[in-house]
Nucleic acid binder design. Structure first.
Lengths: 353, 353
DNA sequence: GATTTTATTTGGATCGATCCAATAAACAGG
DNA sequence: CCTGTTTATTGGATCGATCCAAATAAAATC
């Protein structure tokens, strides 16, 4: 019998239900019922089939089954940038939830390239993905994603979204997060607060700036466009942006950064400019990536819980897969402010004693 | 004709080659030839089929095709911990290379759980993955991975490997990397060098310690077991390990850290202990993760290029898929030392003026 | 125009598992 | 022992695309 298994593996011909049927002395249909744990088969028959499975070293062919059943247990996960720990955490949460629900993840990293994104979307569609989780690459045309609604497949946008597209989405409340951060600085007495980093035109940037403006507005502070300094979303961008802000005739006393990675650059540049962060200058990041607690001083930032967003979007997708008639939902998660050590009271103009 | 496409999408019945054949007035076989760009079909016929594809909104079914052709264009990627930026970078390189070769990635994150790892391996096998890229979870039983050689499917172990398993692997030369780091410290005059962090018994730890020992040995320094302090591979572990090392009767003047994340903790703890890193105490990390260049001072570390490892292991896997008769290769990549600011000359015992 | 040769096209079987309607076996009750 | 149920099992068609050998059409040769 062990000999039999060897034989099978040697001839490389795959063991199929037909082989099992022959070996167990039953029909293919019965074998199939056993494979699917049907209560219809007699206990003894089930045992015989299970023994045959063991003896022949049978491996179930999910693709063949899915073809016949016209189902799919694969979900497409299209991420813009896995090397960013923030999105890696998102992917982690996604995969975890999907796996728990019995799905496998077809993963692709677009590297922020809309062309590649288009290609992988197409490929995964051809693979019959049961649903899509999409974190759109910057520069994605709305038209392209809108076309997905004709695909007859549920789609959830996560972290980012395209304006005006009627598909499900699970995103953090960026505006609220930035507003909370701004209010924290205002409460510390800051009045000239810069917004550093982010790409102009990007929905996410727009939202964050909106939150920043709303806070200033509520505090009765007139907006100063020169304090908003767009820059690349990486430490280099942060360095540049801070330099530009400090060069203003009336420089800011604090900065809201588009993201933690921008903040990292801002911290470096502050030190280089001779400013002690937390005393001379206040900084707040956004995302709360793993590195945020190990900067010097530890970075005050806005946490958005990417892992949780991943789990939620997986859940939302699974709901839509289970009942496609349900309308797409827009889920918005509240972020929270994590106060660490990069903010202090605004320096007073005439320092007393 | 646009009406026709709508009709098709409404009735939700998938458009198949048979539909295309009817629409274009040819046989299924001809349609199939067109789909595969066969040079056998007449130009005009091809056009008619392509028009039908357009009109009916046909989507190729890769699973059905793969079933018939007995092939697979899916590769299983089993990663131990995606939230670690180091492995995220690895996944990125992998996915990029696989996609370029026309494969899609079935991705799973085991979260260092051997049980889950076992399950996902099984599932992906049932999905007919053409090959496996495996970064084994710590605690994986050798037996389990060894069993994969009976699966008749190429497997490449990456970053980590199980001793004695004859499967392909692509890994950094950990011993060499640590040796280079140690030699750097030796050249700066350090004689008491600690090794902080890492799990005892783990192959990767063993290798790194081996490199450390080899360097000391070559310099004629007697090994001191108390200077080797295993600890969890996270900043907390680094903090603990440094405390323990500084508490020795003859404390080290420098530390080699198991990894950058351990080094982050060591940097924090050094500052807390009143040691100025780069002057009073020297530190070297391992991995060169993105955050390494933004510590204070920037971390000197050993770069192992995870993205490159990903691309290489993908290439190795693709070679094995193309020709399974080729014997599995063991590829070892040389790391390099990235000197930044956390190392200085050894403090002299009797400081001179 | 008949005959080769070459270029296209095609029906039917097939990949591996599942569905469905139909059959067979087991179990009652009279 | 027979009929009516309930419980198990089964053959044949099917999912959507591809393979293969064979048929047809077109082009080339004599």
């Amino acid at each position: 019998m062990s000999q039999r298994a060897q034989e099978a593996s040697q001839t490389s011909r795959r063991v199929t239900v037909t082989d099992l049927a022959r070996e167990a002395g039953v029909s293919r249909s019965t074998v199939s019922l056993v494979l699917r744990d049907s209560p219809l088969v007699k206990r003894e028959t089930r045992h015989r089939v299970e023994e045959a499975i063991e003896r022949l070293g049978y491996v179930y062919n999910r693709n063949a089954a899915n073809l016949r059943r016209r189902t799919s247990d694969m979900v497409a996960m299209i991420i813009n940038d896995l090397t960013n720990p923030f999105f890696a955490e998102l992917a982690f949460g996604l995969e975890e939830a999907l796996e728990a629900a019995g799905y496998v993840s077809l993963m692709a990293n677009t590297g922020e390239d809309p062309v590649r994104q288009r290609q992988v979307m197409e490929t995964m569609r051809e693979h019959g993905a049961a649903g899509f989780i999409l974190c759109p690459a910057t520069g994605t045309e709305t038209r392209l994603v809108a076309a997905m609604s004709d695909w007859n497949v549920p789609v959830i946008q996560v972290m980012r979204w395209l304006p005006g597209v009627r598909l499900g989405s699970v995103v953090p409340d960026y505006a609220l997060g930035m507003r909370m951060a701004a209010e924290h600085l205002l409460a510390l007495g800051h009045r000239r607060i810069a917004f550093l980093g982010g790409i102009e035109g990007n929905v996410v940037t727009t939202e964050r700036v909106r939150g920043y403006r709303a806070a200033l507005d509520a505090a009765g502070i007139a907006p100063d466009p020169s304090l908003i300094v767009p820059a690349a979303v990486n430490p280099g961008g942060g360095i540049e942006a801070l330099r530009a802000a400090l060069a203003l005739e009336s420089p800011p006393t604090a900065a809201l950064c588009f993201s933690d990675v921008v903040a990292f650059g801002v911290l470096d540049a502050s030190a280089a400019a001779g400013l002690k962060v937390g005393r001379d200058f206040s900084v707040i990041g956004f995302d709360d990536v793993a590195g945020a607690r190990h900067t010097l001083p530890p970075l005050t930032t806005v946490a958005v819980y990417p892992g949780e967003l991943g789990r939620r979007s997986a859940a939302a997708l699974l709901r839509r897969i289970a009942d496609p008639s349900e309308p797409p939902e827009q889920e918005i998660l509240a972020p929270s402010l994590v106060v660490r050590g990069t903010c202090g009271p605004a320096p007073t103009k005439n320092p007393q004693a």
